[in-house]
Design a protein around this nucleic acid. Structure first.
Length: 447
RNA sequence: GGACCUAUAGCCAAGAGGAAAGGCAAGGGACUGCAACUCCCUGACCGUUGGUUCGAAUCCGACUAGGUCCUCCA
């Protein structure tokens, strides 16, 4: 099979070949930590984690990096408002972010560079751009000279003339061109650093390329983020990297589509923004909801749909748990089953084909549903332990890739005895006792 | 003003030129000591309208409705 990825840079479906065989390098734009993340922020968090899981499941070593933007006007404003320093504000929301990420079933085990800890490298990067004449200093501010980069606009498919025509009346007269973007801003307020240009702080476009250059030291395989970052942020990253590092940051650019609420943009002014931490119920149901739509398509959120997917996820998890417990009760659990059953094997093929087709997670979920039906049928009647173990193995693989991992715990002696007692009571037609044991099993969430 | 995206059953959603996947909800049936879970069966003039084609949900044009970007935003 061949991995196909839609490359936003070329606007085409391309065969994915990592630069170094067996190693996939990924960078995903992370959050500006001035608030809790909302449900739209969860989309790239879940999707790119799934990409990572798939590559890892296929035996690759995945080098996954995602930054924290902990220098920003909004953080400074928040710190001022709360009478704290910027570092404690950003640390608070970094912690909150990582809790949300974990609750969504995404791994928090990745490289997490922060702007505040990258200041020297960011300043050096900007200084290099100035030295090479790709950037210029005016009154302590530094701007990137877009006119020097002929390919500007290629990623977002824009023409320079259109951009200039559409540009707002530029209040900043220091810039040579309204398209030039800020690399460094001189400031007397808030968190700031000394630099060869002035005392100030960096613009937010340089951090990602400085981090990528430092951590990977070469063009990476995949750069991901939301479609709304394509312009200007990613365009600006490419411009800087081409000037400084002589490559386009990443060989494959991936952009996820936007999430809205009931067809309306989610925004504070409409009063319809929802924070991840405020969602009720198991967030893995939300993960399933997010993965049920292809990552590039727009997704319209509703609480009704969330509940529907949460219910579905609960049923799915229950089936796998029942399969696991049945094998456990019969002492026929095998740690690693070899997949020889053709029906089960074909669901795996179907699953992989979906994933290899530009991470078509909706179709991967369809393959999962086929396997789920097989599992439920195996559970309806006495079945071969070896086939059941294969089904469990396949389920673990698929759900592991999707980040929807059921909690599977072996039964302890007491639980095992309870199942036996229930069985015995039913066999003896002592239904009053059977109902008591059943109620206890339900109470313990074992059936 | 410029650049785009989306429109498939009550809801969610695949499919991207050759007989409309899947899930949820709903109805019917089966299993069960009674339940729950589960299983089986039942659903589509693919936004409207012109065109291209032997053949269009899929390609092209127009229209309608929503949305995005050009300005902080995943």
């Amino acid at each position: 099979m061949t991995m196909k990825i839609f490359n936003s840079y070329t606007n085409a479906l391309e065969t994915f070949v990592p630069r170094h065989p067996g190693v996939v390098s990924m960078y995903v734009c992370g959050p500006t930590v001035y608030n809790y993340i909302h449900i739209g922020n969860a989309r790239p968090v879940v999707f790119f984690d799934t990409v990572r899981r798939y590559f890892a499941a296929k035996g690759n070593r995945v080098r996954f990096v995602s930054n924290f933007t902990d220098v920003d006007d909004k953080i400074i404003a928040k710190a001022k408002e709360q009478g704290k320093d910027e570092a404690s504000v950003s640390q608070f929301f970094i912690d909150a972010f990582l809790r949300d990420v974990a609750a969504l079933g995404s791994s928090v085990d990745y490289v997490q560079p922060r702007v505040t800890r990258y200041m020297d490298k960011i300043i050096d990067y900007i200084a290099d751009l100035v030295k090479e004449d790709y950037a210029y200093v005016v009154d302590g501010d530094v701007y990137f000279r877009v006119s020097k980069f002929a390919e500007y606009g290629r990623l977002s498919n824009r023409k320079l003339d259109d951009l200039i025509a559409g540009a707002r009346v530029e209040v900043n007269e220091k810039k040579e061109s309204p398209l030039d973007f800020t690399l460094w801003k001189k400031t007397a307020e808030g968190i700031r650093w000394d630099s060869p240009f002035s005392v100030g702080r960096p613009g937010w476009h340089t951090e990602c390329v400085a981090m990528i250059d430092d951590i990977f030291g070469e063009e990476i395989d995949i750069h991901g983020g939301g479609m709304d970052l394509m312009f200007p942020h990613h365009e600006n990253e490419i411009a800087q990297a081409c000037a400084h590092d002589h490559h386009r940051v990443a060989r494959y650019w991936m952009h996820n589509g936007r999430l809205d609420i009931g067809g309306e943009k989610m925004s504070k002014s409409l009063g319809n923004d929802i924070k991840v931490k405020d969602l009720a119920g198991d967030l893995r149901g939300y993960r399933m909801y997010l993965l049920a739509t292809h990552y590039r398509a727009p997704l319209s959120f509703s609480l009704e749909n969330l509940e529907s997917y949460q219910k579905e996820w609960a049923k799915d998890e229950k089936s796998v748990q029942t399969l696991f417990r049945t094998l456990d009760r019969n002492r026929t659990l095998q740690p690693h089953a070899v997949l020889s059953d053709p029906e089960i094997a074909s669901t795996l093929t179907q699953f992989d084909e979906a994933m290899e087709n530009d991470f078509n997670t909706p179709n991967a979920l369809t393959a999962w549903n086929v396997l789920l039906k097989i599992i439920n049928n195996l559970l309806r009647r006495p079945s071969e332990p070896s086939v059941m173990n294969q089904a469990l193995e396949a389920a673990r693989y698929m759900l592991g890739v999707l980040g929807l991992e059921p909690v599977l715990k072996p039964l302890d002696g007491e639980e095992r005895a309870l199942f036996t007692a229930w069985d015995d009571a039913r066999k003896a037609k002592d239904f009053a006792a059977a109902d008591r044991f059943r109620a206890e099993l339900v109470r313990r969430d074992l059936i």
